[in-house]
Design a binder for these strands. Structure first.
Lengths: 133, 133
DNA sequence: CAGCATCCAGCTTGATACTG
DNA sequence: CAGTATCAAGCTGGATGCTG
């Protein structure tokens, strides 16, 4: 770590994402990864079964959803409830911790969604000025 | 779009990340991507030059930082201020929109950082119960 | 200093097929 | 239904070398 750089209050936390080797970086990637965020977002509204999730998160493959769910379960953000019936029924829902994280995540998502008009306008401007090259 | 699925209030927004083809999905990925989030986080504290950013975001390559910065600039989240001096000096900082987004993002990051003890404990439990396989 | 162009290893992802 | 296993393809991202 380069101790010459300025430290802000946030940097005093034991787990600092800005550090390459920090474990929080991994968890943050599970949360913000391609499917992690959407999965948490979907579960925020309530418990869902595997294939419900799959339909809800438009575009995930079976494999990716499975993988994502495992990572989130391991991190303690998602709870998996399997009923040994036939056919099998498995429900996924957020843990209290997962709920906290999802809340922040959704705030971010909604912020981005709500800004899309500006973003799209900015893109158009950017592409116009230097789009010719 | 599958209109048979339940719609929650959030789904009424014009740009819904849960939809595969939605442009907000792309922007969200710029923001939450491997380097996007850390870049926004770093700039939240103030303007930084290219190599300052590179040092601050531990692990980015030149190429990825450059790429990330372009995407964020195009989306209107980051402002690039180049001075035609020699040697060149370029400052990056957040736009008001970028600031809003970064705020939410940092809330998420800090939430995750602050939960790492729980996460790590959960991982240990998870690995212990089924780690033997 | 602030980048862009190129090359290429390897990780991620999506299809497909199969199991309990 | 709820997954796992396998494989090929494509994209990601790091290293290197060069420009202004």
């Amino acid at each position: 770590m380069d101790s010459t750089q300025q430290l802000t209050p946030e940097d005093d936390l034991a787990y600092n994402v800005f550090a390459k080797a920090c474990p929080s970086r991994g968890t943050l990637e599970h949360v913000t990864g391609r499917w992690g965020g959407l999965t948490l977002g979907a579960l925020y509204e309530g418990s869902l079964r595997f294939n419900e999730l799959r339909r809800r998160v438009d575009g995930v493959s079976e494999k990716m959803l499975s993988q994502t769910l495992h990572a989130l379960e391991r991190d303690g953000l998602v709870h998996r409830e399997a009923q040994p019936t036939n056919p099998p029924r498995v429900d996924y829902d957020l843990t209290p911790l997962g709920h906290q994280v999802a809340e922040r995540l959704l705030a971010l998502i909604h912020c981005v969604e709500g800004s899309m008009d500006d973003v799209l306008a900015s893109r158009a401007r950017y592409d116009e000025t230097r789009g010719a090259l």
